[in-house]
């Protein structure tokens, strides 16, 4: 099994109050598939994203990725894990303002042992013509495509996306989804997409549904459709 989560809990303590942002969540993910995570606001989606990506720590439970337990790694090994395994796509892009489009992607490629060609990825994401611009000169959709390029270029096995279409219009959203699907098909990358948009789950192999920190449903999707066909 590629990703395996066993009774993962994340607890926030504020004074006496205790919030279980994740409560004994267990699941397994297969390599090369597309997953979506859905659930109401505050249900723990971003928390799961952070912990899976090694950006934050769980209080309880274990997570294995490629048979390595990431929940027991120290800071340095976690950094290696992020570098070698994971690409992130955030809702608000998080591009680096001081670097051009090309350099943003290069900054990511430079860390990888077998990166893809930067210009090839830029072309694939249809932002090649913007390669020498700075992020603030781009539209939201363009910025998100650069962010995906940045995640893809280092050729990771896992791409995590937190509401990648949350700030985009319909057309831009569909383009982003199509590109994520292309990456999955072309490179066999496992992709996990957090979304509010139920329609998006139709392009996934399976969907995780969270409520109040608990995993209430894990449903396979036998009638998977292509990103192109997804509408809402």
């Amino acid at each position: 099994m590629f990703v395996k989560a066993e009774k993962v809990s994340k607890i926030y303590r504020l004074g006496k109050n205790e919030t279980r942002a994740l409560n004994e969540v267990s699941f397994e993910l297969e390599r090369g598939k597309i997953y979506t995570v859905i659930g109401p606001s505050g249900s723990g989606k971003t928390t799961l994203f952070n912990i899976l990506g090694g950006l934050d720590r769980a209080e309880e439970g274990k997570i294995f990725v490629d048979n390595k337990e990431i929940t027991s790694m120290d800071q340095k090994r976690l950094a290696d894990y992020r570098r070698d395994y994971v690409g992130f796509v955030f809702q608000f892009y998080n591009l680096i303002n001081g670097l051009t489009v090309y350099e943003n992607v290069l900054a990511s490629a430079a860390l990888s042992e077998n990166p893809l060609d930067v210009d090839m990825v830029l072309k694939m994401m249809d932002v090649y013509s913007e390669r020498d611009k700075f992020p603030f000169e781009l539209s939201g959709g363009q910025q998100q495509r650069v962010a995906i390029a940045r995640a893809v270029v280092k050729n990771p096995v896992l791409i995590l996306c937190d509401e990648p279409t949350g700030a985009l219009d319909y057309e831009s959203s569909k383009l982003v989804l199509k590109l994520l699907e292309d990456v999955n098909r072309q490179f066999g990358t496992t992709i996990l997409i957090i979304t509010h948009n139920l329609a998006i789950s139709r392009m996934a192999d399976a969907t995780l549904r969270l409520r109040s920190g608990r995993l209430v449903e894990f449903s396979e999707n036998p009638q998977k459709i292509s990103a192109q066909e997804v509408t809402w």
């Binding site: 990506g53 950006l55 800071q75 340095k76 950094a79 290696d80 894990y81 992020r82 570098r83 070698d84 994971v86 992130f88 955030f90 608000f92 998080n94 591009l95 680096i96 303002n97 001081g98 900054a107 990511s108 860390l111 940045r150 280092k154």
Partner: peptide
């Protein structure tokens, strides 16, 4: 003011 960028660098796998 560059917190998001530093965080992003971390998330990409850059070390402290």
């Amino acid at each position: 003011t560059m917190h998001a960028e530093i965080g992003t660098l971390y998330s990409m796998g850059y070390t402290q």
